[in-house]
């Protein structure tokens, strides 16, 4: 009932572990596959080892989850030895990468491609680091990144991960589609900040961070809705998806796959099974046999 495919990759269900949540190690990716995710995304890696920010790097208050982990990572060369290959887990793996320069984007893409992931996701949209260039909100730079990653990815499909921190996400989506992207992942976190009155200081050590979790859902739904209207390539709709109903709504906005990150915190690692079960219950009740029947239906 939930079987889906994207860019030729077959999935048992449309839920995908979003990048940066638990996907630091191979056994943890495998575990999230066993917990029911249809596919799993690695924590983003670049050309060098990074420790990221000091704590506090994240906290939660109600529907808001704020983080500024600052893209820690072991670096691509170390990861090649650590992961060895990405095509031998029980579910498809999406390799997530970034660089500071265009050349680095190309180099790390080539290296991750050598591990044979099912897809490569290009993270141009983390609000918590300085890439050196504004890849996240410049259509021409995003197009250049897309081209160089596509060139180095070989046959592996490439998805570009977009930011909600832009004036018009449609323009960004159009630019990366035109440059050859096979898919779009939307969205990364929305910038935000929190100050604690008792200490009179920003709570996050990095001061500002990115909002995820249920509070982000309406932003993500709107972005996916607009992207679906603008491009033909499939969308991995990500942002605040916590329940099966959230996932159904994301599909109605136009998503082919549904990214799930912060919900692992709200509902535990078994969240994927829970979301899938809730989706099936809703589909049965509404006599929907395949998600194709409702994809983008909110546009009609």
């Amino acid at each position: 009932m939930l079987k889906t495919s994207i860019c030729g990759v077959k999935l048992k269900n449309p839920t995908v572990l979003a990048s940066g949540i638990l996907g630091v190690t191979k056994p943890s990716l495998d575990r999230m596959g066993r917990e029911g995710a249809g596919a799993v995304t690695m924590k983003s890696l670049c050309h060098e080892e990074r420790s990221g920010n000091n704590n506090p790097t994240m906290f939660n208050e109600g529907e808001v989850f704020l983080n500024a982990v600052g893209l820690p990572g072991q670096g691509m060369d170390s990861a090649l030895k650590d992961f060895k290959r990405l095509d031998d887990l029980s579910v498809p793996v999406i390799g997530s990468i970034y660089g500071y320069t265009l050349k680095q984007f190309g180099q790390v893409t080539k290296k991750i491609a050598s591990l044979n992931p099912a897809m490569i996701e290009v993270n141009i949209s983390c609000p918590n680091i300085h890439y050196g260039e504004n890849y996240d909100n410049s259509p021409s730079l995003a197009a250049k990144v897309t081209k160089i990653c596509k060139k180095n990815a070989g046959k592996i499909p490439v998805s570009i991960k977009l930011s909600p921190n832009v004036y018009d996400i449609k323009v960004m989506a159009k630019a990366v589609e035109k440059a050859g992207a096979d898919a779009i992942t939307a969205i990364n976190t929305l910038t935000g900040m929190s100050i604690d009155a008792d200490t009179r200081k920003p709570i996050l050590k990095a001061k500002t961070g990115g909002i995820s979790g249920p509070a982000l859902k309406p932003v993500a739904i709107k972005c996916v809705y607009e992207i679906y209207k603008t491009v033909k390539i499939p969308i991995i709709g990500t942002g605040g998806i916590t329940t099966g109903k959230d996932a159904i709504e994301m599909v109605m906005a136009g998503a082919t796959l549904v990214g799930v990150g912060t919900a692992c915190y709200y509902r535990g690692p078994s969240v994927f099974k829970k979301i899938c079960k809730e989706m099936e219950t809703w589909m049965k009740k509404n006599k929907i046999k395949n998600l194709r029947e409702i994809r983008g239906i909110a546009h009609k």
Binding site: V24, S28, K43, V69, T262, Y265, P269
Partner: peptide, 20 residues
Amino acid sequence: MSCGFGVCGKCMVDDQIVCV
């Protein structure tokens, strides 16, 4: 540990999340 509640993934020992 960065988070203590099963998000950052740094405390993994094999497939076990030490904090949760």
